[in-house]
Design a protein around this nucleic acid. Structure first.
Length: 276
DNA sequence: TCGCTAATAT
DNA sequence: AATATTAGCG
């Protein structure tokens, strides 16, 4: 197999040029440097949403600047991230739990409103389905419903009781602080990278400055301060077709499993998915 | 501009 | 399968 040799070759080059941990690109900024983009042959498909593409639809930038045209990698909603989401929603109360607000409360660097909106939509559907059934086994053992599969993720976090009311009129504005034990969970995160052109994103978050105590259903303050700048780092890596696992960082020093789905779609998992 | 839902795209 | 994006409305 000569191809393997070739790949091994460019791979070592590539490996040497990887940024040091300090230089990891924060998720909130450009996600993939032009260099990496080219190295991975990741090119934007042109239009479609262009999240952080700075040029508006009307304006046309003839020369393609990869860095600017790149699409965000798909966010991977890990159980922990989802938990944070649930906590945020729980503490905001139904009325205030809208994408933007949730996003702010979560204070996850790199998390966009759209990420949250999309997730929220699915989560709501999940809740609805849960109500339809005899409520009771929200967490852990669903399965026989034969429903969409994100349930998996959703089931990983306990659903606050008041979410499951069909009467959405007057929810309790807050949750009995029981679910609020997350505290400083370790910053270890899982990262999954899909091969074959699929690039996924891992979000890192720091400690939440404690949630404000909701008074009378109005959350009055300042979850707004996002000053946890120090802990926030994220990194994306693409895997072209390499069989080799690109582990070289101190952050990702252990090999994950390289599993192959039915499609030949490889998924790299760095760090075990730490559930609660 | 934001949010919601359903549909569709990747 | 899991997320993202879009359309159409309020």
């Amino acid at each position: 197999m000569k191809e393997d040799e070739n790949e091994a070759n460019w791979f070592s080059k590539w490996e040497q040029e990887l940024p040091s941990p300090d230089e990891l690109t924060p998720l909130s900024q450009s996600l993939i440097t032009p260099h990496l983009a080219i190295a991975f042959n990741i090119q934007n498909n042109s239009n479609s949403g262009g999240d952080f593409d700075s040029s508006p639809p009307g304006e046309l930038n003839n020369t393609d600047e990869p860095a600017r045209t790149l699409k965000r990698p798909r966010l991977v909603w890990t159980p922990q991230l989802h938990k944070r989401f649930v906590d945020a929603v729980a503490h905001l109360g139904i009325k205030n739990a809208v994408p933007k607000t949730i996003m702010q409360l979560m204070s996850v660097d790199g998390l966009t409103r759209e990420n949250v909106a999309s997730h929220l939509q699915k989560y709501r559907l999940y809740l609805k389905r849960m109500q339809g059934l005899s409520n009771g086994g929200a967490a852990g053992g669903n399965g026989s419903g034969g429903d969409p599969a994100t349930d998996h993720l959703f089931a990983s976090s306990p659903v606050p009781a008041h979410f499951l009311r069909s009467n959405s009129d007057h929810y309790l504005p807050y949750v009995p602080v029981a679910a609020l034990q997350h505290q400083q969970q370790q910053q270890q995160q899982q990262m999954m990278v899909a091969g074959g052109g699929g690039v996924q994103l891992q979000a890192r978050y720091g400690q939440m400055g404690h949630f404000g105590s909701p008074r009378n259903g109005q959350f009055e303050h300042s979850y707004l301060s996002r000053q946890n700048s120090s802990i926030q780092q994220g990194q994306v890596q693409g895997v072209q077709r390499v069989g080799t696992t690109p582990v070289n960082n101190s952050l990702v020093s252990s090999y994950g499993e390289e599993v192959e789905g039915a499609n030949g779609r490889k998924v790299l998992t760095l760090f075990p998915t730490g559930d609660d």
